[in-house]
Structures are given as C-alpha cells and as structure tokens.
Design a binder for these strands. Structure first.
Length: 232
DNA sequence: GCGACAG
DNA sequence: ATCTTGTCGC
C-alpha cells in the first residue's frame, strides 16, 4: 500500500487533494468477496505530538480476530471538521501496511460520503488504497435524520441539509440504544454498508472491528508514552 | 459576523 | 479525540 509522501500540510492543500480524489470514489457494490474484514482507529497525545493507529483483521463470519498491527507516528495535521482524514490516515496506512495480509473490506471510525464535500475519511482511505471501505460514525456530524425504530435493524436516512440527498443512514444496531451512522466509503453501496454494519454489531452498538481497533490503539498509545518521554 | 462541527 | 469517579448490570 502507498505511503503518503507529499501529505498536505495546509487546509488549502487538503481541500485541493479532496477535490482531486472525490471523482475517484465508487459508491456501488463491488463483486469481490469479503473473506477478511479490517477495523482501523487512531489515538492521540497532542502534548507529545504522538499518534498511534491500529488495524485489526477479523473473520467476517465468526468475528474472531485473526491478526492485528499498530503504527506510531507524529501528528500530521490538526483536527479540522471536514479534514479529519488528513489527521488520521497517515498512521492508518502504516498500520495497514504492517499487516501480513490485506483485508477485503475496511471499516472506519467516521464517515465516507456523508461529508460536506463527499470525501470523508472512509472514502478517502478507499481511494488511496483501492480497498473496499465503509464508515460507521457515532454522531450525526452536520447531517439530519429522524430517529429509527427501537428494534435492531431499523434505520432512517441521514441527509445533507444543504442538498437533501441521502448521504448515509442512522442504523439501530441494538434495541433501544442510540443508533450509529453508516455511510458508503468506496466500492460499496449504501445497502451493503448498512448490512455490513449490522453484521459486525450484534452484541454491542459499535462494530466489533471498531471496538477491537479502538482498544488496541489506546493500549498502544499508553505503551508508546511510557517507552520514551519520562515526564514532559 | 456567530455558532456548529466525524475523531 | 481527551480530561475524569463511581456505579449499575450481565
């Protein structure tokens, strides 16, 4: 997988990069099977300019973890709503590259097409790697939606208030529990993105992929903080 | 101009 | 994201 060489450092560069990548997003199902699914997530320590990403591979049927990897690096971009990919992806790409196998699908903690300019981190990662991706976020960001029914599996459209178009879906993964927000990343359709989300989130609100990646990058961050930098 | 805003 | 105690429940 490609390693970011000329990664954007200014908002203007980032916006130009999004404009370049946006037309390359494929928002329809790809025929390729999914035998290996990955979850990726990132943890930060801004004080020490430290970022740690985790990539965890699961068997999509049993949801068993079959491999995992982490990557430590320097924070490459500040947090700017709408430009999250530039902050998270460098480390994520490194973590994915550290795996001995390549996943067929990658689940991101955030959005894909549900983005002001239709290029959230999930879509961004998909275009950069060519992998099938989808995004599952925990909050509605700037989008509108009605509350889905209380039963697991029910969903409602997530719409862009500016255009009215459906950019994702609010999905109830657990009865009576706050929904998650699924959207297309790359090489996948919205129905499949929702189906995949439900397949991965049975016991808990969030997909097992994100849960494993989240706990792993947090542990790795704590470890990285101890290893170097005693108390500064 | 002001507030909101994935992680 | 991160700062943070105890607490209710499987």
């Amino acid at each position: 997988m490609p390693i970011p060489a000329d990664w954007p450092t200014t908002e203007a560069q980032a916006l130009a990069e999004q404009e370049r990548l946006r037309p390359l997003v494929q928002a329809v199902d790809d025929d390729a099977p999914c035998r290996l699914i990955a979850g990726v997530d990132v943890a930060y320590d801004d004080d020490h300019d430290l970022v740690v990403a985790a990539a965890v591979l699961l068997d999509p049927d049993t949801l068993d973890v079959v491999e995992q990897a982490t990557a430590v690096g320097r924070i490459a971009f500040p947090y700017v709503p709408g430009l999250l990919a530039f902050r998270e992806l460098p480390a994520v790409l490194d973590a994915l590259a550290a795996l001995t196998r390549t996943p067929d699908t990658v689940v991101c903690d955030g959005y894909g097409l549900a983005h002001p300019r239709r290029l959230g981190l999930a879509s961004h990662l998909g275009v950069l790697t060519g992998l099938r991706t989808l995004g599952v976020a925990k909050t509605p960001f700037t989008f509108d939606h009605h509350d889905p029914g209380p039963e697991r599996g029910s969903w409602t459209p997530l719409t862009d208030p500016a255009t009215g178009e459906e950019v994702g879906r609010a999905v109830r993964t657990r009865p009576g529990v706050k929904p998650v927000y699924a959207s297309v990343g790359h090489r996948i359709g919205l129905d499949t993105a929702v189906h995949t989300t439900l397949q991965l989130a049975r016991r808990y609100r969030l997909p097992e992929t994100t849960r494993h990646a989240d706990s792993l990058c947090r542990r790795a961050l704590t470890e990285a903080q101890r290893g170097r930098t005693p108390a500064n």
